[in-house]
Design a protein around this nucleic acid. Structure first.
Length: 412
DNA sequence: TCTGGGGTCCTAGGACCC
DNA sequence: TCTGGGGTCCTAGGACCC
């Protein structure tokens, strides 16, 4: 007998989301292999692709050059993130009609808490079918729903029945369900962990379940050991249980060709500083830890980080810290493939004005105010050309920026 | 085939303090 | 003077996810 008080979680996952939106907006793309990401001839990977493209062996995270050779007649289109956010918002509104307990975890995924709705909507499987129908009717998109008593198992359930799927794991059957999966199906077991498990002669979920907790902790550390021990038994390790808020903001650029030109690298660093600081302000956050990242031609990646005694107050300050850090990780000669910049340890900035008054340096305070004014202007008129520093204005020698490199408006 | 960009969380070693 | 142990913060790197 199923208790009406049993917890019920839906994991809702929009199918091939970016590619589906492109097919929706461009009817001529329907039933054709659509590949969203970098364009052929450029560095980059596939962000998403339609199921038609998958039948050619294309998948997300694959280098675009490879996708192009597997599917030369595919339709390659760039990422239009702001459009996907818009459609995502519509879908979330449909979800909200079913429960106030919507926890969005990415642009194309959400957990829904449907506990205690049996009397209102009937059995969870019926509710999930109605939800799929509502999403299709209102947006034209298909969504796969996994239903279980916990978030972790609901997530595995949706992954088990894509696309346009509906899979219910009845309460009490979590362990049996997980036993039927491959080790690599377990969320949180990636390529490296899989290889290490196999090296230890652990090839299946059943074998993992026979492995002692102490052994797993010894080989993988306490945290991952406990994680593996739990998930193979269908026990939720506590994913997404806490209220999440962002702890870092970063931005990075991979150059079309590796470069060692100091001026170009400095200029890129300044653009990144502008972008990161803009987002920090836009989200009304403050932070004091700066991290830079560089990647060499051979893909070796290094980082350097410094925590300041005070919160960052301006683009110029972030930029000059970033340059100091860059000098610690780059000899100024080797060609770089990528450069990145981030601020971490960020917290909500409750009171801007009180904060600003703490700055003893009047110029810093002035800068801060000018930058905040720019943020407010861009927020008010997002379609107007961005106001920016003279040295960041487009260089006639350089190709134009791809659409989605600029600061974004967050859907809230 | 030559590998994006945005995040999260964990580990391990060293500094520092009690 | 020498010593132990714990807690916390910082830094660098790595695994994983969408």
């Amino acid at each position: 007998m199923i208790d009406t008080a049993d917890p019920v979680v839906f994991h809702c996952d929009l199918d091939a989301f970016y590619a589906s939106v492109e097919q929706l907006d461009n009817p001529q793309y329907r039933d054709r292999p659509v590949i969203v990401g970098a364009l052929p001839g450029h560095r980059g990977v596939v962000s998403a692709c339609s199921y038609e493209a998958r039948s050619y062996g294309v998948h997300s995270a694959m280098p675009v050059s490879q996708a192009h050779s597997r599917c030369p007649h595919g339709i390659f289109v760039p990422v239009r993130m702001s459009r996907y956010r818009e459609v995502s918002q519509q879908v979330m509104e449909v979800f909200a009609d079913f429960t106030p307990g919507v926890q969005q975890i990415s642009v194309d995924e959400a957990f829904l808490d449907l506990s205690g709705t049996r009397r209102l909507f009937g059995p969870p499987g019926k509710t999930a079918a109605a939800l799929k129908q509502a999403v299709r009717h209102r947006t034209g998109l298909t969504v796969t729903v996994g239903v279980a008593a916990t978030r972790y198992v609901a997530k595995l359930a949706s992954a088990h029945d894509k696309p346009d799927g509906l899979y219910v794991v009845d309460p009490g059957h979590e362990a049996d369900f997980v036993l039927g999966l491959e080790l690599s199906d377990l969320w949180g077991v990636g390529r490296k962990t899989l290889t290490r498990l196999q090296t230890l002669r652990i090839d299946t979920v059943a074998a993992l379940r026979e492995t002692r907790l102490e052994f797993l902790r010894g080989h993988f550390g306490e945290s991952t050991g406990d994680y593996l021990y739990n998930v193979c038994r269908g026990i939720d390790p506590g994913i997404y249980s806490a209220e999440s808020r962002s702890h870092s903001i970063s931005s990075e650029t991979t150059f079309e060709v590796d470069i060692s030109d100091r001026q170009l690298i400095d200029r890129t660093l300044l653009e990144l500083a502008e972008h990161v600081m803009f987002r920090l302000r836009e989200e009304r956050c403050r932070g004091a830890t700066v991290t830079i990242k560089v990647r060499d031609s051979d893909f070796a990646t290094r980082s350097a980080q410094r925590s300041l005694k005070h919160d960052l107050s301006s683009v110029d300050e972030l930029y000059s810290e970033a340059r100091l850090l860059l000098d610690r990780r780059w000899n100024g000669r080797d060609a770089l493939r990528l450069i990145g910049l981030g601020v971490s340890g960020i917290e909500p900035d409750q009171d801007h004005d009180a904060q600003a008054n703490l700055f003893s340096d009047r110029t810093e305070e002035k800068r801060r105010k000018v930058e905040q004014a720019l943020v407010d202007l861009r927020r008010k008129r997002p379609d107007s050309p961005p106001v920016t520093r003279a040295r960041l204005l487009p260089d006639p020698e350089r190709p134009p920026e791809p659409e989605d490199r600029g600061p974004r408006n967050r859907a809230t």
